[in-house]
Amino acid sequence: MSKTLTKESLLATSEDDYMNDEQLEFFQALLNDLKQQTMAHIEEMKAESSIITHKESNDTFCA
Rank of each mutant, 00 (worst) to 15 (best):
L34P: 02
S49I: 00
I42Y: 04
S14K: 09
D33A: 14
K46G: 05
A29P: 02
M19Y: 07
I42N: 00
K55H: 14
L31K: 11
S14N: 05
T53L: 00
E8F: 07
K46R: 07
A40R: 08
D16H: 07
M45I: 14
S50W: 01
L11N: 08
E56C: 11
E48H: 11
M19G: 00
T53A: 10
T53P: 00
D33W: 12
E8I: 03
S49K: 13
D21V: 10
Y18N: 04
I51D: 14
M45Q: 11
L34K: 14
E56L: 15
A47S: 10
D21F: 10
H41A: 09
H41W: 04
A29V: 13
L34Q: 12
I51L: 14
A40G: 01
K55N: 15
M19I: 07
S50K: 13
A47T: 10
S9I: 03
I52C: 00
H41I: 09
S50A: 12
E8D: 10
A40S: 07
D17K: 08
D16L: 07
L34T: 06
F27Y: 12
D33V: 12
K55V: 15
D21Q: 05
D16P: 02
I51Q: 14
E15F: 14
I42M: 05
E8V: 03
E48T: 10
S50Q: 13
S9P: 07
Y18P: 02
A29K: 15
F27T: 09
T6M: 01
L30K: 13
A29E: 09
K35I: 13
L24M: 15
F26Q: 00
Q28R: 15
E44Q: 07
T53K: 03
E8C: 05
H41S: 07
I51F: 13
L34F: 09
M39D: 12
E15M: 10
L31A: 11
S14M: 02
M39I: 14
D21R: 04
L30T: 11
L10P: 02
L10S: 00
Q37E: 09
L10K: 00
T13D: 06
E15N: 11
H54N: 15
I51M: 13
D17L: 10
M19T: 03
D21G: 08
Q23L: 05
K46I: 11
H41P: 02
K7F: 11
T13E: 09
A40Q: 06
E15Q: 10
A29D: 11
Y18T: 08
S14W: 05
E44L: 01
E22W: 08
E48Q: 12
F27I: 09
F27H: 07
S9Q: 07
D16I: 05
T38K: 03
S9M: 03
D21I: 06
